[in-house]
Computed example of a mutant assay.
Amino acid sequence: MSYYSDTPSVDDELESLGWYHFDLSRHAAEALLLSNGKDGSYLLRNSHEGPGSFALSVRAKDSVKHFHVTRKSSGYAFGFNEFASLQDFVSHFANQPLLGSETGTLIVLKCPYPWRVEEPSIYESVRVHTAMQTGRTESDLVANAPSFGTKEGYLVKLGAVVKNWKQRWFTLNRNELKYFKDKMFDEPIRTLDLTACSAVQFDYSKDRVNCFCLVFPERTFYLCAKSGVEADEWIKIIRWKLSQIRKGR
Rank of each mutant, 00 (worst) to 15 (best):
C197L: 07
N164A: 10
N164M: 09
L177H: 04
F185Y: 14
M184F: 15
Q167W: 08
N173F: 13
V162E: 08
S198Q: 12
P188K: 03
M184I: 15
Q201F: 04
K151N: 03
L177R: 07
N144W: 12
D140G: 05
Y204D: 08
V142N: 09
L192A: 02
K166W: 07
D203N: 07
L172F: 06
A199Q: 09
F148T: 08
P188G: 05
F148C: 00
L141V: 02
L155W: 00
R168G: 01
T150N: 14
N173P: 01
L194A: 00
D182P: 08
L141N: 05
N173E: 13
L194R: 12
K151S: 06
D186I: 11
E187V: 13
A196E: 11
A145R: 01
G159K: 00
K183A: 13
T195K: 15
D182H: 12
N173Y: 02
D182W: 09
D186F: 11
F148W: 10
K166C: 05
D186T: 15
Y179L: 09
Q201A: 14
N164P: 03
L194E: 09
A143D: 11
K166V: 06
K157M: 09
W169G: 06
N175I: 09
F148S: 06
Y154L: 01
T171P: 02
T171D: 04
I189V: 15
D140Y: 01
L155D: 02
G149V: 03
A143E: 12
T150R: 10
F170H: 02
V142M: 09
D186W: 05
Q201E: 14
G159L: 03
N173D: 12
Y179Q: 00
A145S: 15
Q201R: 14
A160T: 06
K178S: 15
Q201S: 14
R174Y: 14
L141W: 07
L158I: 07
R168L: 04
K157W: 06
E152W: 04
R190A: 11
